[in-house]
């Protein structure tokens, strides 16, 4: 099975150059049945990554470009009167697919955002009094521009919490950039990607991830991390239990990706920045707030592995 995953990484690596770590994180996030938030400047390949992921996993994929005039119905779907049958007929919106790419999610109003976010949590949508289940598996890959850019509605903390991971792609390094500039058009490359996994295989992999063993010693370490976040003066709030679960699932997926059947402290440390970076806010009464990376690094450095 893990050969399949290596193939997935290979395929993705052809399109997104020099971002092996982020690709693995993104894949781990999906294997852990979590939603993914990609946060970075425009033009570093967020959309390409989302598109490539959907294709390579062989999933049905829809994209919603979030704009400030986007309405919930544009996401969820709408009932339209059908003259032929004389009744209302529901036209499902783009959310009814396996992978939803919510592009520039922070450009939409909170109302539109929350329509999607509710679907993410419940895996179902309620439209006009009727509850409709979403297809399985269901992932949301959202991209957003840094909040300080013009015309954005930052996602509130409660909604950020629903993304299992938040990753940044960052600029490519020198050689990757050169390769990019010399290489073929990304769109063409995307079209060339073959699906590696079937839906059944993906669900099988997800089940295996869940079965990865987390020993007591590891849970001790995880709890020590959570405790630290709650006691330390550097954070506004400690990590929630949901964040703890997210860490554990993320770490399980990460160790599974690395062909292990038990979680090691290193796995936790590897997924920690992506899982808690968007969940931990720097405390207000600090004179010099720590950056997201510093917050995480401080936590790792402060909690001993026993």
């Amino acid at each position: 099975m893990t050969q399949l995953l290596d193939q997935v990484i290979d395929q993705l690596g052809q399109v997104i150059l020099g971002k092996q770590h982020q690709l693995r994180l993104a894949l781990a996030c999906l294997l852990a049945r979590g939603h993914l938030l990609i946060e970075d400047l425009p033009g570093v390949g967020k959309t390409t990554l989302a598109h490539a992921l959907a294709t390579v996993l062989g999933l049905h994929y829809q994209r919603i470009q979030f704009t400030s005039d986007l309405l919930p119905a544009d996401i969820l779907g709408v009932s339209i009167y059908d003259r032929d049958s004389g009744s209302f007929r529901f036209h499902p919106g783009p959310v009814f697919s396996n992978i939803v790419l919510a592009d520039e999610i922070n450009r939409a109003t909170p109302k539109a955002q929350s329509a999607l976010l509710e679907a993410m949590e419940e895996h179902q949508v309620s439209i006009e009094g009727e509850t409709r289940p979403l297809p399985q598996p269901f992932f949301v890959i959202a991209t957003q521009n840094p909040a300080h850019q013009v015309g954005t509605f930052p996602l509130p903390e409660s909604q950020l919490d629903r993304f299992l991971m938040s990753i940044e792609l960052g600029y490519p390094d020198n050689s990757a950039e050169r390769q990019l500039l010399q290489g073929a058009d990304r769109r063409k490359l995307l079209a060339g990607i073959e699906p590696v996994l079937s839906t059944a295989q993906l669900q099988e992999l997800q089940a295996q991830v869940n079965a990865v063993h987390a020993a007591d010693a590891l849970l001790d370490y995880l709890q020590a991390l959570l405790d630290y976040s709650r006691q330390s003066p550097h954070y506004q709030h400690g990590l929630s239990p949901r964040a703890g679960l997210a860490l554990l699932h993320g770490a399980k997926a990460w160790s599974f990706l690395h062909d292990r059947d038990m979680v090691l402290p290193e796995d936790l440390q590897a997924v920690l920045p992506a899982v808690i970076g968007h969940r931990l806010q720097a405390s207000n009464d600090q004179s010099e707030p720590l950056s997201s990376g510093e917050r995480v690094q401080r936590m790792i450095a402060s909690v001993p592995v026993t």
């Binding site: 090691l264 290193e266 440390q269 450095a301 909690v303 001993p304 592995v305």
Partner: peptide
């Protein structure tokens, strides 16, 4: 290092 996992 105290925060170092065994594999690292």
């Amino acid at each position: 290092k105290p925060c170092e996992g065994p594999r690292d």
